[in-house]
Each structure stands twice: as structure tokens, then as C-alpha cells.
Design a protein around this nucleic acid. Sequence first.
DNA 1: GTCTATACCCCGATAGAC
DNA 2: GTCTATCGGGGTATAGAC
Lengths: 220, 220
Amino acid sequence: MASDHTRTAILAAAERLYADRGFGDVTLRDIVAEANVNLAAVNYHFGSKDELIAELFVTRSIATNRERLRELKAAEEQGGGRAPIEVILHALVGPTLRGCLGPENQRSSAARFMIRASIKSVPPIRRIKNREIDHLRKFAGAMRRSLPDRSDVDIYWGLNFALAMAHHTIRESERLTKLSEGKCDLDDVEDVVARVVSVATMALTAGRTEAKAPSKVAAR
Amino acid sequence: MASDHTRTAILAAAERLYADRGFGDVTLRDIVAEANVNLAAVNYHFGSKDELIAELFVTRSIATNRERLRELKAAEEQGGGRAPIEVILHALVGPTLRGCLGPENQRSSAARFMIRASIKSVPPIRRIKNREIDHLRKFAGAMRRSLPDRSDVDIYWGLNFALAMAHHTIRESERLTKLSEGKCDLDDVEDVVARVVSVATMALTAGRTEAKAPSKVAAR
DNA sequence: GTCTATACCCCGATAGAC
DNA sequence: GTCTATCGGGGTATAGAC
């Protein structure tokens, strides 16, 4: 209880510093100085630098996944076990986008930490992401129930593209702002969510893509 | 001439080792051992570990961008300065996907290096990517000419989503394979290209997204 | 169980001789 | 251009104090 003051102080200091300066530029010595604890305490409580990062990541990650499933479950219950595809996609990408985007000046250090994590992807984070497959399978199942005529392959590609748009937009938000000279407003989170959901829905509902066509288009 | 044998040997060894084991797990000492050169030679020729990685990345990156522009130019000339949107998108994502995907067993170490680079994104690589904005602007221009009725904002979002799908599919190809239990065939590159182009085209040509709608859907 | 002091080893970088 | 030697600093491991 009072005893994990050290542990908590390390987590708080680490999250703040990582959010501000990234993983590579923050040393454990920086963190322990900020938290006013001893260097060895990090290894005692977390085992290694990577596992400290992992701990921060999972905490936030679990919260997002819980919110995703909450929205998904609510939607399927309301629809009698079969939700509209837009609503499923909304549950999939909404929590993630809402957790990382939004007005810059009010972005929590937790949010900025998650953006860094999206970009850098150190080993422990990839490990955790790979364990997320079971979580994604639940969405694949809901999508299959929503679109029973669609092939599994199309479902998976739709899921992949939805996540692609959400994560890439977070990862490269700075570049998109620069490229569009500010015309793309990344602070309007609900607009971004709507755009991603809209495109992903089209991908999943449009007449079969004639994917196998050679399409030698523009091949010199 | 004979003098840059050292330089070349370092580049070759570095690319191979980074492709196999990633940036974090390969030390300069590993590289110089593989290349049979002296440790200090790396800093003499490249300045730092990061700049060595950057050199490898730009070489490959420039080749891809050249191919992209070649396809774009050919398409616009053929269409009298105005190419179909599918063809523009094909020129945008085709070279990148072709350079990183394909049958696993025939993937060059250059290709595997670029996949690592897509995932890890060390500082020098992000620096280079930010310089790519001018390159992307050329595609935005072509897209605007192709779809003159579309707003700039929609053009930029379409461009963003096209790149998102391409890069995310490369980054997370392993996860998609696992998730779909092999049903999504990432070795069939032209199929992947066709899928990305198809979805991005829909995103850009479908009736205006009613993006600003609050869309309180599923909000508990 | 917690926390501290300290030492270890390896990494990237550099200086200076050749 | 190339090499040897070395430096500062990073993460990690351990021994022991509370």
C-alpha cells in the first residue's frame, strides 16, 4: 500500500519523461532522478527498462481494449447479436483514436506516451501486440455475423485496413498536418473516427473487389 | 575506388545483419566483424551508427520514389496531364508494396531491412521521411487534377489512408497472416496492391462523407 | 520485502599514432 | 585511410542495509 510509493513514483516519472522525450533519449538514471528513488529500484520492481515500458503500455492498452469490447458488446446486444458494420468499426477504432488524438494542449502524458509507443515499437510492445490477436478475433467474429455473405478473407482485409487507417493517422499525424498545411484537422477526433469508419465500411460492403485481376495498369 | 572497399563492405554487412536481427540487437562490433574491417572505420565513413542506418535507408528510399514518379509521370502523359485516380494510387503504393512484400523465401536482405525500418523508425529515418513531404505533394497535385471536384481536405485524407493501408500491411504482415490463419495471402503482391488501390479509390470517389455528423452511434 | 550503494560489462564515439 | 587504445555512459547484477 504505502509501500509501493517507489513503484508508483517510477511509473509516473517514466511516463512523463518518455512522453516528452521518447524512449531512446530517456535513461533509467533520468527516471530515478525525477522520481527521487534509487537506480536499482527499477530493476527490483520491473526487471528491466523494457519491462518498465511494457508495464506502462499494457495498463493503457488494457483500458482501451476494455472500452472497445464494451462498445462492441453493447452494439451486438442492442441488435440482437448482430450489429451494423459501421458500429462495430466504430467500436474498433474509436477508443484508440480518442485516446491518442485530440487538442494538443490538453493531451495527457499517457496519451503522448502511447503515441511514442505507436511509433517506436520496442520489443516488449510488439510482444504485447501479438497477444492482442485473440482480442481482434472477437471483432472479426462480430464482423462476420454482421456481413454473413462476405468471405473471411474480405473480413480480415477490412479489419486490417481499418486498423491501418487508425494507427497510421496517429503515427503520422504530424506529417499529415504539415502536408495538408493544417487543412486536415486532427484535433477534431470524432471527424477522424467518422472518416476511418466510413472508408472501412465501404471497403467491406462494396461489390466484391476484382482483386485477382492482373491489372497491368500503367505498367510502362 | 579500391579505397571504398571498406565502405562498401560495411554497408553490405550492416544491411544483412540489420535485416536478420533488427537494429537494436546488432552492434557496430558485430558489423565490423562481419565485414572484416576495423571498428573505427564505421565512424570514419559514416559518422555514427544512426547515419549508417540512414545511408542504407535513403539509398533504397530514393529508388522507390523514383519508380513511383516514373509511373505517375507515364500515367499523366498518357492521359494528357490527367490520369485516372486508380492509376495514380497504383503508382503511389505499388512500388513500396512490391519492394517489401512477396514470397518470404526470395525476400532480399534489402527488402527485409526496409521492413525493419518501417517498424522501428529510428531518428534518422524519421528525419528522412519528413523530407518526403515534397514528394507526396506531387501525388496530391496529380490527385487534385484527377478529381477536380474533390476538396483538398478529402484529397489529403485519401492520400493518407492509401499510405496507411500500404505501410500498415507491411508493418503488420505477420500479424495479419496469423490473425487470418493464412487466409490472407501476403505473397500475392499484386492482389494486395489491387486491394489497397480499390479501397483508396472508393474513399476518394464515394459520395461526400458526411464527416461532420456527430454520429453518436453506439455511444452507450 | 524494500531499498541502497556500488561494481560490471558492453556499447558508440573519439584521439592520435601510423 | 586505417588502426589501437581509451573514454564516458548506458543497462544490468549483486551484496547487504533497513
